[in-house]
């Protein structure tokens, strides 16, 4: 007796049935809690315990404060810089991996994935040891005679960017690699045979076709960066603040859940807005005239 495949295209009910477990899970454990947090953001005062009423004062407090506005802008800027940095560094790696024979690719993939298995705190403390005054980099620079005394390499914005890029680069590489794997190399050969230079082929064929991977990588890295708080806290020093850290403080330190909830939704809205904008401006331009899914 052979199994008969279900034709989900012609049976919308079957499609819904297949989606139902995942939808139920999302509804219960994502949508309902998010709605609860959203409701909390409209409570007046500094506590949600026994709170009633509806006010926009938490949002007003956020937008009327120069501190929160500047931290929000800084957070979005970090998100964009880290995502672009990951694209620049990750694209060549993802592309080359995709063009490798599967056996070779497997080994290199392990090397890329292994850092993701380490605890974030361990990775950050590793960087602190590396960049510290008595760290490897300072010792190397001293030994080479490039500096006369140890430099302060930690606790600045550049250090935060470097560490965030290192943390999130594997996500970009994997996203790009998966899409480039779907691009038939024949298209690149065809472009070359039509006398296109390597740069033109890259610009007009590879990048537009890899755009979905670039965008999904950008989305992943951007979202993870804007919500980061361990790295900025440990690496960034006194003057580097990101909104994730402030939300953490409001929820766990001051226990001002209404304000923490409002900040979370502002970050969510701004994050979605930036991603929509990137999608609209960049992807449409790159893929104009192409049939890219």
């Amino acid at each position: 007796m052979s199994a008969v495949p279900i034709d989900v295209e012609s049976r919308p009910g079957a499609r819904l049935l297949l989606l139902l477990p995942a939808l139920a899970l999302l509804l219960l454990f994502l949508v309902v809690p998010m709605f609860s947090v959203f409701r909390t953001s409209f409570f007046p005062g500094t506590s949600s315990m026994g709170a009633t009423g509806f006010t926009l004062s938490q949002y007003a407090r956020f937008f009327s404060s120069t501190l929160y506005n500047s931290v929000l802008l800084e957070t979005v800027a970090y998100g964009i810089i880290v995502s672009v940095g990951c694209i620049v560094l990750g694209f060549p790696v993802g592309y080359s991996l995709a063009r490798m024979p599967p056996a070779k690719r497997r080994l290199r993939m392990i090397l890329i994935i292994v850092p993701l298995t380490l605890s974030l705190v361990v990775v950050v403390f590793g960087w602190m040891v590396l960049l510290g005054r008595q760290g490897l980099l300072n010792n190397l620079l001293l030994a080479l005679g490039l500096i006369e005394a140890p430099r302060q390499l930690l606790f600045n914005r550049a250090a935060v960017l470097v560490v965030l890029i290192q943390q999130f680069l594997p996500f970009m590489i994997l996203s790009i690699m998966n899409v480039v794997l779907q691009i038939d190399p024949v298209l690149e050969h065809a472009s070359t045979s039509l006398r296109a230079t390597r740069l033109t082929t890259f610009r007009k064929v590879v990048v537009p076709l890899a755009a979905p991977g670039i965008v999904s990588g950008f989305t992943l890295v951007f979202v993870m960066t804007v919500s980061a708080f361990v790295t900025p806290r440990l690496i960034g020093g006194a003057r580097t603040q990101m909104l994730g850290g402030l939300i953490f403080d409001e929820v766990l330190t001051t226990m001002n859940w209404p304000f923490g909830a409002a900040m979370s939704f502002i970050l969510l809205a701004v994050g979605l807005g930036v991603l929509a904008l990137v999608n609209m401006l960049v992807v449409r331009r790159i893929t104009r005239g192409l049939h890219v899914r």
């Binding site: 403390f125 602190m128 510290g132 005054r133 008595q134 302060q152 606790f155 440990l234 020093g237 006194a238």
Partner: peptide, 22 residues
Amino acid sequence: RPNIVSLASSTVQELQLLRQGE
């Protein structure tokens, strides 16, 4: 403010910063 090189997010971190001479 110009003196503060870092705000420690935990006791262990402050311990490490003082130990390492940061």
